[in-house]
């Protein structure tokens, strides 16, 4: 009926809708970019998206706040997210590989129980986790945030999908016939094949821990160990009635999202979210 060119014209309306969505999503980010460059006076007087002249003095003020505690929060967050996500990936990949590639008594039951952990509301866990860790003398330590972050049932679920899609049984079988031990097969065959999937699991878990608020909020009392989320919350809670502190909160908010946005833009190809499809295409 119609020719190919006419059948697929440039969609002006779809493009406009998507650009509106993009604009909406960028709005607060653009605002904080502009606001963080403003001095205290400029913040309330100049146009919301006009750049100001105070970026460096704001950063200096924030760095000076309580002897540079903001950078301590940043380092803590990097520690929680980095170490937590690394351990989490290791535990998930081991479990997912075992569940996908071995046949053993209780396989389905173990999987169902582990995966059931997704469904438990975080607060049902956080309060008793705090009490139990307090009994062990670990509340208000780095461990209190690190240890509960390692097990992530959803990552185990993803790892199982990746393992069953990416590792051919024949390859493992051939290795076994050649007399390779299970640990060697894991190291030489399974891990390299699952690597793209592992990066994805690491990234999602890294972001989840970086963004977590409830767990550290409950576990920590000492602001020396706070991650950024809890630190910024307390800064906001102190500063809400003192517009003088607005600049610190705004600059802190900007600095706290830069690392994740950088990670996110550089690791683009690993942000695959195949919930049910299988392997990661890289």
């Amino acid at each position: 009926m119609t020719t190919k060119g006419v059948r697929r014209p440039l969609g002006l309306a779809p493009t406009a809708v998507l650009l509106l969505g993009a604009l909406y999503c960028l709005l607060p980010v653009c605002w904080v970019l502009a606001a963080s460059t403003k001095t205290r006076g400029e913040l309330f007087t100049t146009n919301a998206f006009a750049p100001g002249t105070g970026l460096f003095s704001n950063i200096a003020d924030l760095s000076a706040y309580r002897d540079g505690i903001f950078w301590q929060w940043m380092a803590n967050t990097a520690l929680y997210a980095g170490v937590g996500a690394l351990l989490s990936t290791a535990v998930s990949v081991l479990a997912g590989y075992a569940l996908a590639k071995f046949r053993f008594f209780g396989r389905n039951m173990i999987f169902n129980v582990l995966i059931g952990g997704i469904l438990v509301p975080a607060v049902v866990l956080a309060v008793p986790q705090y009490l139990l860790l307090a009994k062990a003398g670990l509340a208000n330590t780095y461990w209190a945030v690190l240890l509960p972050s390692i097990l992530h049932p959803y990552s185990i679920y993803l790892a199982r999908i990746y393992a069953s899609a990416a590792i051919p049984d024949a390859l493992l079988e051939a290795g076994r016939i050649d007399g390779a031990g299970e640990n060697r097969l894991l190291r030489v065959v399974a891990v390299p094949l699952m690597l793209p999937g592992m990066v994805t699991i690491f990234l999602f878990q890294f972001v989840a821990i970086w963004n977590n608020f409830l767990l550290p909020f409950i576990m920590l009392a000492d602001d020396e160990r706070f991650p950024l989320t809890v630190g910024l919350y307390t800064l906001l809670a102190t500063g809400a009635n003192q517009p003088a502190l607005y600049n610190l909160v705004i600059t802190g908010a900007l600095l706290s999202i830069i690392p994740l946005i950088a990670l996110f833009l550089t690791m683009q190809r690993y942000w695959r979210t195949d919930l049910s499809g299988g392997s990661v295409k890289s």
Binding site: G11, G21, A22, V207, F213, Q268
Partner: peptide
């Protein structure tokens, strides 16, 4: 739908808030 322009830009921009912690999003 393969008919839109600037699809890559829109996709990245709309996914960007995922990188912003809930506390910071609420704060902004």
């Amino acid at each position: 739908s393969a008919r839109v322009r600037l699809a890559r830009f829109s996709r990245i921009a709309i996914f960007l808030p995922y990188a912003v912690p809930g506390v910071v999003a609420t704060l902004l």
